[in-house]
Design a binder for these strands. Structure first.
Length: 307
DNA sequence: GACAAACTCGGACCCCAGCG
DNA sequence: CGCTGGGGTCCGAGTTTGTC
């Protein structure tokens, strides 16, 4: 058994066709087919159900696929790590981030990292926390920058907190609320809210402020750019990280809102960003360097390129 | 039902690295 | 240098599927 056979099996599983799998591996279909057969012969069992058009993996095939993913990824990591031990000028870095840190911290860090190490291919997976967690466990990502509250009770993960980033309430320019001299939380609840998915604790706080049993935003959207567009065209009030809407505030397209009786401990999205990695797993040199860059930018608040 | 297209598989053959 | 084995290509046969 060798890694090539396992790569072919993964390609077959992905493309569900011997022809397309062979194409993806840049070999002819008979060679591809024979390689799968050899693997089956070596393991003494069928790995693919050829009677079905979809070519699903057999139960044995599923087990082999599970190990194949880890072995192929492990081999890739090994090459990466050895290459990067010599010098940080080759190999790949795979990491992930949630929507909130994507607003400025992560792009700034990637820009600084890629300028310093142009030979390293950076692959960034932007996803929700569940999928990021799964990718971390499968060793597809070195680390992720995400909301730590989703990972804090899981011993699988190591959490390195980043600076607190409080969210702000905002509205469009010319919003009726802007004509008032002072705003209270009653004004906040007079308009629908557009927010990212709010943590239960925040919803609870908003519910108690509004006097409702449960609080739910009118629009929930993880894409901050979309959220801003929605707020700019309506009388809705939005919540977002200040960094993400800074340009709109500077251009006068959006206005930040302060409510005089708003509790100072209201937890808004983005406040608990952290670097999440696997416990007991040594990071590749490129990953360590990217984390150092992230922490540096997080502390100074500006990108070395810009600031 | 006939036909064409797509797919999988096996046989024949070639190339190349490793070994004695 | 010749043998051997692994992995590749080319070609054709058999099967399945979709279309008319």
């Amino acid at each position: 058994m060798d890694l090539k056979q396992l790569r072919y099996l993964l390609a077959l599983n992905e493309h569900r066709s011997f022809v397309r799998g062979a194409d993806a591996m840049n070999i002819t279909q008979p060679a591809f087919s024979r390689s799968i057969q050899n693997l089956e012969q070596e393991l003494g069992c069928q790995l693919v159900d050829r009677r079905q058009k979809e070519l699903p993996p057999t139960p044995e095939g599923q087990v082999v696929l599970q190990h194949a993913r880890l072995l192929v990824q492990g081999a890739r990591n090994l090459v990466n790590e050895v290459t990067q031990l010599k010098r940080l000028d080759a190999g790949e870095l795979h990491f992930g981030c949630g929507p909130a840190p994507l607003q400025s911290l992560v792009p700034d860090a990637v820009a600084a990292f890629s300028t310093a190490h142009p030979g390293i291919l950076v692959r960034l997976q932007v996803d929700n926390w569940e999928r990021l967690g799964r990718s971390l466990i499968r060793e597809e990502l070195e680390f992720a920058v995400a909301d730590s509250r989703h990972f804090s009770n899981d011993p699988t993960f190591n959490i390195q907190p980043l600076k607190r980033r409080d969210g702000v309430f905002f509205c469009r320019a010319g919003h009726p609320l802007l004509s008032k001299e002072s705003l209270s939380t009653n004004d906040l609840f007079a308009y629908p809210l557009a927010t990212p998915l709010l943590p239960p604790a925040t919803r609870k706080q908003l519910a108690s402020l509004s006097g409702l049993v449960d609080f739910s935003s009118t629009v929930q959207c993880e894409d901050q750019a979309a959220l801003v567009r929605i707020v700019r065209q309506t009388d809705m009030l939005g919540i977002a990280g200040e960094e993400g809407i800074r340009e709109h505030l500077q251009q006068g397209l959006l206005q930040a809102l302060t409510f005089r009786n708003m509790p100072s401990n209201l937890e808004t999205r983005g406040a608990h960003c952290a670097i999440i990695s696997r416990n007991g797993y040594r990071l590749a040199p490129a990953a360590q360097e990217m984390i150092t860059t992230l922490l540096r930018i997080d502390q100074t608040g500006t990108s070395p390129l810009i600031g």
